[in-house]
Design a protein around this nucleic acid. Structure first.
Lengths: 111, 111
DNA sequence: CTCCATACTTACAAAAAGGTGGGTACCTGA
DNA sequence: TCAGGTACCCACCTTTTTGTAAGTATGGAG
């Protein structure tokens, strides 16, 4: 995410949620806060490294709140901020659209 | 766009609309079909090469219909398919969210 | 001591996305 | 002929994103 000025609201929003993993992480946190390990298992296919990186970015964006619990074993919990929740709400119609058109999307030819 | 299987509808949708230019092009075509040159001027900052490339991809995805008019000067017109229109509809809440949170988004620190 | 749990960091590589520059095609008009 | 219009294509390069591998930290149990 390098842009600083956007042409419209959609341009800005798509930039915020862009990349392979952010939408999935946002959705994994939709119902309740999750620990790092829980997130790792919920977001299928993501490596620890990518999960940490994405979470750090999303924390910087203000989408996610990170709470460190000083215990053993260590526990770090991630939850959506209000900002993040509002984004998730705005993403619902898009997710429905994707679900409705899943077969079409998966049938798109790619090289 | 390389993925073939998605974890959920949102994952699929974000993959379809991902990248720097697709959302802007989708929105440029929202109200009416446009010729290539009109699109170039409407989508601020895009090069001819990137516009062609994105349009070709979106045609392959089935989002956009390309109509060649055999005239001089040459005219090629692009319009949204029903599939593309349905995606635009699903993007409206996201665009509104982006508009509402534009200042927040532009204030996000980046390196 | 080692191994286990959790949650990271760093260096480097590979893949993907975006961009620059040069050119093409077709036609018309000066 | 060249210059203008429109809409592309290709080769190559740069930047960004994603991923692999190796390591760290804290503490507890065997």
């Amino acid at each position: 995410m390098k842009k600083r000025s956007y042409n419209c609201g959609l341009d800005a929003a798509v930039d915020v949620v862009g990349g392979k993993w952010k939408a999935l992480i946002l959705w994994a946190l939709h119902h309740e806060p999750l620990r790092f390990g829980e997130l790792r298992r919920t977001v299928s296919g993501i490596s620890e490294k990518m999960l940490i990186q994405q979470l750090r970015e999303m924390e910087t964006y203000g989408l996610v709140h990170r709470e460190v619990y000083h215990q053993v074993p260590p526990k770090v919990e991630y939850s959506l901020t209000e900002f993040g929740q509002s984004l998730n709400t705005a993403l619902i119609p898009l997710g429905d659209w994707g679900e409705r058109h899943m077969e079409t999307i998966e049938a798109i030819p790619r090289d």
